[in-house]
Amino acid sequence: MPMKNTLLIILLMLINILVSQAQERYLLENSFVRFFSDGIVEDIEATNKDSKGIIDFSKNEFLIKIPIKSFKFASALMQEHFNENYMESNKFPEGTFKGRIEGTYDLGKNGTYYVNTIGDLTIHGVTKSRNIPASIYVKDGKVSLESKFMIKVAEHKIKIPSIVIRNIAEEVEVTIKSDLKKYDKQ
């Protein structure tokens, strides 16, 4: 009988640990996404402050969603063509990156931690498996992140007509920066 009780207690503790571990969730706050195309004729740049995301550090999982229509261009016509002709943002309203974090970091200790993110990057409805380096910054309990990577336009079936091919780079640079806010609910 005492054996059984011990077993029970251990089990309960295990469950508790597992459940309480699931609380290390953070939401993106003050997110900033920029893309930059270094074209032969002209540079194209757009920024986006409406991205959402969640990171579960207890499981090293994350999900980031970028609303395509929220990209702001200096030229309204460029913005229109970006949405209408290239990204087809009515059909594919979001870009997403979902995956897991690999690497070591300590959210309780100040520092810059270089980690790898491995997951599925979906843009224009086309999903690519990607391995993207990222930095996690911890300063006095405040956590933020940053990442910069390239996207090959053709890989996501974004068609560029030959008439403007000189204006748009084949690869665009994407920068993501965001603060993280602890999410306590459940």
């Binding site: 029970l8 089990l11 469950i15 969730r25 999982e61």
Partner: peptide, 25 residues
Amino acid sequence: VLLFLGSFHLSYSQDDLEAILNDAE
């Protein structure tokens, strides 16, 4: 029963990030 409850609890906490994000937003 405890094991069952535990696994239920676990699966609940493993809830899809998408659902949690939608709930948060």
